[in-house]
Amino acid sequence: MSRRSNSPYFLLTPAMLTTVATLAICMVVLMVLAVARQSYLDIDLTFSTHNVELALTSPLILKLMVKSALISFGVTLLSLVLAYPIAYLLAFDLTRNKLLWLMLFTLPCWISYLLRVLSWKLILGYQGMINTSLMGLGIIDQPIEALLYNSTSVVIALTHAWAPFAILPIYVSLEKIDRSLIRASGDLSDTPMQTFFRVILPLSLPGVTAAFVLVFIPTFGDYVTPHLLGGPTGVMIGNFIAMQFGASNNWPLGAAVALLAMLVATLLVCIFIAGSRHAIKAIR
């Protein structure tokens, strides 16, 4: 194995073809489609900014974009807050079977996302667990319909599905913290609270940021959860995109909105990363 050769480039080729190259083609195709027009069943590829303009100016798309951002932002923050103590527990409190517990807390991440969303129907539904138990206890006379088919049910199901994903990166960054820094902070008469906010939290920030990206990106574009649990008020931008490639059959508009959604998601992630860096400076 010679250290200076073309071999690494050959070795990288298959993986690069299925990831980066395919992705690049995807982006090109979306861009070409976005400046085309749908004419009935065919796509007219002559250049037109019609759909891009529509994507940028339509109040409906703007509304869905804002709602998706709000839902996804709420889900991400909830996920981070809920996951942090678990990551902390795994990193600092547990000494034995750490990896086993880490696995048990993150196992559901890998199991069919569709099924985990479906399961919330069994809990929140008309005859679901909450309604039937409350009625059994005599607290309510008839099922609460408001539990399902709104943005709250979407937030609950999404948080449940994605919070475990946030545990892993936070745990990794907490595990990396040099324990002597924490002891030093205590020796210099910081209260445990001060130690947490001035030492542990700032040092775990890379993990929190990674967790943010890991949860925010997929939830922003999700359409499974809103479709199954969202009802008419829980629709998100992913549903709109999927619909353009399905029933509405307006692929160019779908492509324009997909590109826009991607840009918005990336932009919001960048804003968050910049914001969290700023916040940490302020804390210190």
Binding site: M16, V20, T22, I217, P218, G221, F245, A258, M262
Partner: peptide, 27 residues
């Protein structure tokens, strides 16, 4: 650069890659 770029597909909402691949295959 190669190390980072191999993870890029995970940084996009799946619905976007889904419709893009669909467009490639159909067009």
């Amino acid at each position: 650069l190669a190390t980072v770029s191999l993870f890029v597909p995970l940084a996009l909402p799946t619905v976007v890659t889904g419709v893009a691949l669909l467009s490639i295959f159909m067009m």
